[in-house]
Protein backbone atom coordinates (compact mmCIF):
# COMPACT_ATOMS: atom_id res chain seq x y z
CA UNK A 1 0.00 0.00 0.00
CA UNK A 2 1.67 3.19 -1.18
CA UNK A 3 0.57 6.34 0.60
CA UNK A 4 0.41 9.64 -1.24
CA UNK A 5 1.11 12.97 0.39
CA UNK A 6 -2.55 13.78 1.06
CA UNK A 7 -2.99 10.47 2.90
CA UNK A 8 0.07 11.25 5.01
CA UNK A 9 -1.41 14.65 5.82
CA UNK A 10 -4.64 12.97 6.85
CA UNK A 11 -2.87 10.45 9.11
CA UNK A 12 -0.80 13.24 10.68
CA UNK A 13 -4.03 15.13 11.31
CA UNK A 14 -5.66 12.07 12.94
CA UNK A 15 -2.61 11.75 15.19
CA UNK A 16 -2.55 15.52 15.89
CA UNK A 17 1.02 15.55 14.69
CA UNK A 18 2.44 18.66 13.09
CA UNK A 19 4.60 17.76 10.10
CA UNK A 20 6.80 20.20 8.24
CA UNK A 21 5.37 20.39 4.67
CA UNK A 22 8.91 20.01 3.35
CA UNK A 23 9.13 16.57 5.00
CA UNK A 24 5.81 15.13 3.74
CA UNK A 25 7.26 13.51 0.62
CA UNK A 26 9.91 11.72 2.64
CA UNK A 27 7.36 10.54 5.20
CA UNK A 28 5.16 9.26 2.37
CA UNK A 29 8.11 7.27 1.01
CA UNK A 30 9.19 5.88 4.43
CA UNK A 31 5.68 4.98 5.56
CA UNK A 32 4.91 3.32 2.21
CA UNK A 33 8.10 1.25 2.53
CA UNK A 34 7.13 0.15 6.04
CA UNK A 35 3.58 -0.76 4.96
CA UNK A 36 4.92 -2.71 1.97
CA UNK A 37 7.26 -4.53 4.36
CA UNK A 38 4.50 -5.51 6.80
CA UNK A 39 2.18 -6.57 3.99
CA UNK A 40 4.08 -9.87 3.73
CA UNK A 41 1.77 -10.88 6.60
CA UNK A 42 -1.07 -11.05 4.06
CA UNK A 43 0.48 -14.17 2.56
CA UNK A 44 -0.01 -16.08 5.84
CA UNK A 45 -3.12 -18.21 6.19
CA UNK A 46 -4.57 -17.22 9.57
CA UNK A 47 -8.02 -18.73 9.08
CA UNK A 48 -9.43 -19.64 12.47
CA UNK A 49 -6.41 -18.30 14.41
CA UNK A 50 -7.42 -16.35 17.51
CA UNK A 51 -5.61 -13.00 17.81
CA UNK A 52 -3.06 -12.90 20.65
CA UNK A 53 -3.27 -9.67 22.65
CA UNK A 54 -1.40 -10.73 25.77
CA UNK A 55 1.64 -13.02 25.53
CA UNK A 56 0.64 -15.00 28.64
CA UNK A 57 -3.04 -14.87 27.68
CA UNK A 58 -3.78 -13.40 31.08
CA UNK A 59 -6.94 -11.40 31.60
CA UNK A 60 -7.13 -8.09 33.38
CA UNK A 61 -6.81 -8.42 37.13
CA UNK A 62 -9.57 -6.67 39.07
CA UNK A 63 -9.26 -4.99 42.44
CA UNK A 64 -11.74 -3.94 45.07
CA UNK A 65 -13.30 -0.54 44.42
CA UNK A 66 -11.72 1.22 47.37
CA UNK A 67 -10.06 4.57 47.91
CA UNK A 68 -6.33 3.84 48.01
CA UNK A 69 -4.71 7.04 46.75
CA UNK A 70 -4.73 10.57 48.04
CA UNK A 71 -5.06 13.55 45.73
CA UNK A 72 -1.67 15.17 45.25
CA UNK A 73 -2.73 17.81 42.80
CA UNK A 74 -0.06 20.34 43.70
CA UNK A 75 2.75 17.82 43.23
CA UNK A 76 1.34 16.60 39.96
CA UNK A 77 0.73 20.08 38.59
CA UNK A 78 4.28 21.20 39.22
CA UNK A 79 5.25 19.68 35.88
CA UNK A 80 2.29 21.18 34.01
CA UNK A 81 2.96 23.86 31.39
CA UNK A 82 0.21 26.19 32.66
CA UNK A 83 -2.18 25.95 35.61
CA UNK A 84 -4.38 28.28 37.57
CA UNK A 85 -6.34 27.60 40.75
CA UNK A 86 -5.71 23.86 40.40
CA UNK A 87 -6.88 23.78 36.78
CA UNK A 88 -4.91 23.04 33.62
CA UNK A 89 -5.06 25.96 31.22
CA UNK A 90 -5.50 25.55 27.46
CA UNK A 91 -6.51 28.04 24.74
CA UNK A 92 -10.16 29.02 24.82
CA UNK A 93 -12.36 26.21 23.41
CA UNK A 94 -15.79 27.88 23.54
CA UNK A 95 -16.32 31.51 22.62
Amino acid sequence: MALDTSEVENIAHLARLGIDPADIVEYARNLSDILAFVEQLNAVDTTGVEPLAHPLEATQRLRADEVTETVEREDFQQCAPQTEAGLYLVPKVIE
Binding site: I11, A12, L17, I19, D20, D23, L31, I34, L35
Partner: peptide
Protein backbone atom coordinates in the same frame (compact mmCIF):
# COMPACT_ATOMS: atom_id res chain seq x y z
CA UNK B 1 3.43 20.56 20.72
CA UNK B 2 3.56 17.02 19.31
CA UNK B 3 5.09 18.08 16.00
CA UNK B 4 7.87 20.04 17.70
CA UNK B 5 8.29 17.67 20.67
CA UNK B 6 8.71 14.34 18.83
CA UNK B 7 11.58 13.34 16.54
CA UNK B 8 11.19 11.73 13.09
CA UNK B 9 11.33 8.04 14.11
CA UNK B 10 8.69 8.53 16.81
CA UNK B 11 6.51 10.38 14.30
CA UNK B 12 6.87 7.58 11.76
CA UNK B 13 5.78 4.99 14.30
CA UNK B 14 2.85 7.06 15.58
CA UNK B 15 1.65 7.50 12.00
CA UNK B 16 2.03 3.79 11.13
CA UNK B 17 0.11 2.92 14.29
CA UNK B 18 -2.57 5.51 13.67
CA UNK B 19 -3.03 4.18 10.15
Amino acid sequence: SRGEGFGPEVKRRIMIGTY
